[in-house]
Design a protein around this nucleic acid. Structure first.
Lengths: 336, 336
DNA sequence: CTGAAAGCGCTAACAG
DNA sequence: CTGTTAGCGCTTTCAG
């Protein structure tokens, strides 16, 4: 079933069919309507590939979630951020007439050719000087990131909060709940989430003359990694901090459990906060206060921004997503 | 950068380039190597769209998750089955050189044209006489389902267990733990999971002369739906069953909570089991014994099967995935 | 207002 | 063994 069949059936040329169906060119209203009707009755729809060949517009968006490349697994247990992100991105893309293709790091693994034929990419949490971004730039593929490439401050097409605001809010919350010595546990990926959080923490510590208690722990280590950090704290000469901010929910959950095993009570002895809400933070005992990174909203905004860019809407300011702090039992300590 | 550029650079015709790069035709080894080298040095890779136009092979697989269409949301809270499924499917597709495009029900919503240009589809949990399957068949798009279309027993290209085995295993487990009256709570979607579970339950009841205690509750109702079923049980004249098998984890969690509020103790008074492991079943108090539906393995097998079909491997027996029962506190009652 | 015709970049017959 | 050529289904000038 091709455009020819429709043309024959409608008694016009293929040009007229094309014009009628796409609203291009100049076609008599009656003719157009007739063609549209015939096409509809035949259940015709233009071949997306052939159309793409001419217009070099496939109607598909690519999505690459960088932290999953690092984790080397698409199934980090309990971490629902990425799925919620991918699901929302897919829905938003669909609503805007695009498909959404999930791909892995197109620089390393064998990725289908089609990956570089998509109309644009959303890249979640790029690392510094991200090779994926470089590859896409080389191929002139428009892209939007979620979180900055920390080495490319001049690139502004990204959505998110920049973790600065979250980190500041967390610190304020902990201080309000009486924290005197706040530790931070970041991940090791070089993305803006880790970098900005650390920076904000450090400058707060410097300003307030607070001690710096900084741990960096591989994201892939999960709850075990959180336990390991707790272990280090317990083994250290200095006293246990009275508040710990772990960026990942899995670190937070592991750390909290280990501290409890060592006889510390949460939140009475130590306040615990996570920078990313996850199954682990919601369901620990006690549940852990966490930042809801708003994966659905973020994904939708990222896709929306990309699509508007593709449609030629040039100078658009990317939206700043405000994350929300979910306050739970792990910081439920009241101070007078 | 087209095949012409490479041809010019290598001093051969475009045919030779095409043949060399695709391993087709007959090209002198030296020539082939030379072309390959030149192409590599130029960073050339064939345009996937143009190639697709000729071969009508796009290199992309479509994935539609029917229950999400019913739920009308890609973010059912706590349900990680689909995300794990989608993630694993994407990885498997990528490993086999395909992209994976997530789309919604292509019959109802406005879905990009490209959706019908993909090479094949994986359809998770089709409903009876699924219109999506009909649409794809009409367009001659190969497909594999996860779970049967209950109205089309002749279609055998599906992977999964058929919920029969799970249901039988659950019943056996409950009996072993001393259950005397077992209730089942299914969903309302007309998919093989619901239908087969119900059938197995009914025939077991008939064979054993057990009373039939059957509830059907909308999947979308989540935990509230589970509570509602508990409510019905409490309001009923007959005594509360001493074991309840809810297919969805969310129903199970809601039901358990409501029964506990009414003064029943789990597992002492009532055994609770869920047919689908989820955040809710793992983290309820007590944790709920559940079937691990093996989303990763299932997804990989489904994609693998589809790809082998696409590659012409015709008579392949779809694998039967064996799910695993995760036994937890909610059925921890020992009988001598 | 409508249609003929020229490609988009590639693959695959078919000649040479 | 290599190159010429005819399309794949569509969009888009450009003539009629």
């Amino acid at each position: 079933m091709t455009i020819h069949d429709v043309a024959k059936q409608a008694g016009v040329s293929i040009t007229t069919v094309s014009h009628s169906l796409n609203g291009k060119g100049v076609v008599a209203a009656a003719t157009r309507q007739h063609v549209v009707d015939v096409a509809a009755s035949m259940g015709y729809s233009a071949d997306a590939i052939a159309r793409g060949l001419r217009s070099s517009r496939l109607g598909v968006l690519g999505l690459v979630i960088r932290p999953l490349d690092s984790l080397d697994s698409y199934q980090p247990v309990g971490v629902d951020y990425f799925m919620r992100f991918a699901g929302a991105a897919a829905v938003e893309a669909l609503d805007r007439g695009f498909g959404l293709m999930l791909v892995r790091d197109p620089t390393t693994s064998r990725v289908p050719d089609i990956a570089l034929a998509v109309d644009g990419f959303v890249i979640s949490d790029p690392i510094g000087n991200d090779p994926v971004i470089a590859l896409l730039n080389r191929n002139d593929i428009p892209l939007v990131t979620v979180g900055r490439d920390v080495e490319h401050p001049e690139f502004t097409d990204w959505v998110g909060t920049g973790a600065n605001a979250d980190c500041a809010a967390i610190i304020a919350h902990l201080c309000e709940r009486g924290a005197k010595s706040i530790a931070i546990v970041t991940g090791t990926d070089v993305n803006s989430w880790n970098i900005d959080s650390e920076t904000t923490y450090l400058s707060w510590a410097a300003e307030q003359g607070q001690p710096v208690i900084l741990y960096r722990q591989d994201e892939t280590s999960g709850e075990a990694g959180g336990r390991a950090v707790a272990e280090e704290m317990l083994a250290s000469e200095s006293p246990i901090p009275d508040a710990v901010y772990c960026l990942t929910g899995r670190h937070a959950a592991g750390l909290q459990t280990r501290l409890q095993e060592a006889g510390y009570s949460i939140p009475a002895d130590v306040l615990v906060v996570a920078g990313s809400d996850s199954e682990q933070t919601r369901n620990s005992s006690p549940p852990i206060t966490s930042v809801d990174l708003m994966p659905e909203r973020t994904a939708r905004e990222a896709v929306a921004l990309l699509v508007r860019r593709l449609e030629g809407d040039t100078d658009l300011t990317p939206p700043l997503i405000e994350n929300e702090l979910r306050i739970r039992e792990s910081t439920n300590r009241h101070v007078n």
